[in-house]
Nucleic acid binder design. Structure first.
Lengths: 191, 191
DNA sequence: CTTTAACGTGAACCAGGGTTCATGATGGAT
DNA sequence: ATCCATCATGAACCCTGGTTCACGTTAAAG
């Protein structure tokens, strides 16, 4: 196959700036930010956006992919702690808490992706995340902390609905309300 | 004040048709349905939409208001049953189940409302619903079935995020996962 | 240093969809 | 039966926002 020349240094730099700016802008002003605004935030012209991403959908998809990769890393790290002896239920709760927090930075992006019909270009990261979460769940079930019928799709189901447009206190509360559905014991009164 | 003449019969008829069609269309094809399509579904011209609702936002707001009114009625009926001796927790669960079901017919509308910044024209219905739900919760707490710190805003928090884009089985599962957060006892294994 | 392919620029283009308005139809009061 | 205010119609308008493209720039190979 033909040797394609290595990409120019400034192109790489711009691509990063665009991805970052797109994430921030979409998070801040919702999915309906104009390409113009994203370009401005990245300190770049509109045309440059289109050089790197043929379509707005593709740009959003790329942003989502980056987010999914981060989540996958997080999940695998959490799994590592479990394997090192940490309590699975605690790790799961902490992980989910982080997801909810991060999803504030994310919900809008996801919504945009859905609206635009963007497909995750990289299924691999999704699988990584699923595998890690599944392992944590199994560990928790072995401990007798997590309900036996809980699956990864339950997690997805629950957290695809995290209230990202709510203030932090509400998000915390939400997590506290949702967790008992996963565990074998009812929640404590004060929690 | 000046006596405004009573509205014409066909105007009333059309207003109803529009409201119905708008609800259906938005539910079916998402919030981004064109005014043209709504008009077509209602068997009416676009201009007629604008005679009754000065703006798309207003139309959506009206649809939302109608939905809220229905929910309020439902909540009050449920409260009635509780006062007649029904178990509060059961009524709450059933009510929430209905809300989730109905929200399939609604989520899109709500999203549209949010997107367009539509304000609920009628706060009264919202208050009716809140009051009824609050009363049911109190009854359930008196029974010892519902956790003491549960409030109406918890219900909102949880159900403003119901997974409406999921298949029925998933919605049922979701409800089962969420309910334990409200009750004093962990869920049964088989449920 | 020269050359060139990759890259950046931004004004202009275009489609989709909300909104308007001049015109014609109609319900209801006299 | 007549009249008119209310209502319905839908083609045209306009604005927003994604997308393109002809031209100027620049990083890197030789």
């Amino acid at each position: 196959m033909a040797q394609t020349r290595a990409p120019r240094a400034d192109a790489v730099r711009n691509r990063k700036k665009i991805l970052t700016a797109a994430g921030e802008q979409i998070t801040e002003h919702g999915p309906e930010v104009g390409m113009d605004e994203i370009a401005a935030a990245a300190g770049v012209a509109v045309g440059t956006l289109y050089r790197h991403f043929p379509t707005k959908t593709d740009l959003v998809a790329a942003v989502v992919a980056a987010y999914v990769a981060r989540v996958a890393d997080d999940a695998e790290t959490a799994l590592g702690r479990v394997e090192a002896g940490a309590r699975a239920l605690d790790e799961l709760a902490a992980f989910l808490g982080r997801v909810v927090e991060a999803s504030v930075t994310d919900r809008a992006v996801k919504a945009a992706a859905q609206t635009l019909g963007a497909e995750p270009g990289d299924r691999a990261d999704e699988d990584r995340a699923s595998a890690a979460v599944a392992a944590i769940i199994r560990a928790g079930q072995a401990d007798g902390d997590i309900h036996d019928d809980v699956t990864v799709s339950d997690i997805y189901l629950l957290f695809s609905t995290a209230p990202t447009d709510q203030p932090p206190a509400a998000r915390t509360r939400w997590l506290a309300l949702v967790m008992p559905g996963l565990t074998t014991r009812a929640r404590e009164a004060g929690n």
